[in-house]
C-alpha cells in the first residue's frame, strides 16, 4: 500500500466523518427540540389563545399564534402564486428573449438572497409612509416579497422541462399563447406548482424577521386584514425572551409545533407531487 492509497483512505474517513457531522446536527436539532418541547407541550397550548398574563406564566396557549401564522402564510402564498405564475410564464421563449429572461432570473436569484430582515424593514418603511399600523396585511405583503423569488424560480425550473412538442401540438391546433400556457402547460406542471407552493409556504410560515415589524403581535385571533396578528416564530422568540422558566418551556413547545408543521409540509410535498403526477404527459 503506497502513499496515495493512504491518502485516499484518510480522505474517505474524513468525508464520512463530515457527512456524519452534518446528519448529526440535523438529528441534534430535531432531537433537542423534540425532547425539550414534548415535555412542555399540552393540549391547552394548541387549543387556547393567550390569556392575560400568559407571558408571566399564567393560563393559556398559543392558538392565536398558530392561527395567525396560518393566515399569514396562506395569504402570502396565495398572493405570491398569483404573481409568480405570470412571471414564470413570461420568462418563456414565447414572450421574451432568452437574454432578457436570464437577466430577470439573475435579479430573482439576487432577490432570493436578500435577508428577510430587509424585507421587514422595507415593508415597515412603506407602511409608515402609507400610515398603516402593523397588521395582517403588512405581514402578508412582507412575506409575499420573501416567498416570491422562491416560487418563481421553482415554477420556472419545472417550466423549462415541459417538452416542446406539447406546446407545439397546442399551437398547431390554433391555441393562443395564453390558452397554451394556462390550459395546457399549467396542467403539465401541476406537480411542480404544488411543490413550489409547499416550499414557499414552509419558508413563509417559519420566517420571523420579515414580520417582526410588519405583522405586530397580539393575544387575539385577527378578525380583519388591518388587525395586528400573532405568529408562531415570534411567539417562540418572545417566550424565549421572558425571564420565567415556565414561559421558556412553552417556547420550546411552540418551537416543536413549528418544527412539526414544517416537517409535515416537507413530507407532504413529496407525497402530493407524486399524486398529481398523473396529469403529466411524458
Amino acid at each position: 500500500m503506497n502513499l496515495r492509497h493512504v491518502e485516499e483512505r484518510c480522505f474517505k474517513v474524513l468525508m464520512i466523518a463530515a457527512t456524519f457531522i452534518i446528519l448529526g446536527s440535523l438529528f441534534a436539532v430535531i432531537g433537542v427540540i423534540l425532547v425539550k418541547g414534548a415535555g412542555a407541550l399540552s393540549l391547552s397550548m394548541i387549543t387556547q389563545t393567550s390569556k392575560g398574563g400568559y407571558y408571566l406564566g399564567k393560563e393559556g396557549g398559543v392558538l392565536n399564534a398558530i392561527v395567525g401564522s396560518l393566515y399569514l402564510a396562506f395569504g402570502a402564498t396565495a398572493t405570491s402564486l398569483l404573481v409568480s405564475l405570470p412571471i414564470a410564464f413570461c420568462l418563456q421563449r414565447e414572450y421574451v428573449k432568452a437574454r432578457t429572461a436570464n437577466v430577470v432570473r439573475l435579479s430573482l436569484d439576487v432577490l432570493w438572497g436578500v435577508p428577510s430582515i430587509i424585507y421587514g424593514v422595507f415593508g415597515f418603511t412603506i407602511m409608515l409612509l402609507l400610515g398603516l399600523r402593523a397588521s395582517l396585511l403588512g405581514g402578508i405583503v412582507a412575506l409575499t416579497l420573501l416567498e416570491l423569488p422562491i416560487m418563481v424560480r421553482a415554477i420556472d425550473e419545472v417550466l423549462q422541462m415541459v417538452p416542446r412538442e406539447l406546446k407545439e401540438a397546442s399551437y398547431t391546433l390554433g391555441a393562443t399563447r395564453y390558452e397554451t400556457m394556462f390550459k395546457v402547460v399549467t396542467r403539465q406542471i401541476l406537480p411542480g406548482i404544488i411543490s413550489a407552493i409547499i416550499l414557499a409556504f414552509g419558508r413563509g410560515i417559519g420566517d420571523a424577521a420579515s414580520i417582526l415589524f410588519t405583522a405586530g403581535y397580539t393575544d387575539h385571533i385577527p378578525s380583519s386584514l388591518l388587525d395586528p396578528v400573532a405568529s408562531l416564530p415570534l411567539a417562540v422568540f418572545f417566550q424565549m425572551g421572558t425571564p420565567f422558566p415556565e414561559v421558556q418551556e412553552r417556547a420550546y413547545a411552540s418551537a416543536l409545533i413549528l418544527l412539526i408543521i414544517v416537517l409535515l409540509l416537507t413530507v407532504s410535498s413529496r407525497l402530493f407531487s407524486r399524486r398529481f403526477a398523473k396529469f403529466v404527459i411524458r
Partner: peptide, 10 residues
C-alpha cells in the same frame, strides 16, 4: 427548511 427561530432555540 427548518425555521431560523428553531435554530435559535436549539
Amino acid at each position: 427548511g427548518i425555521p431560523s427561530v428553531v435554530y435559535g432555540v436549539f
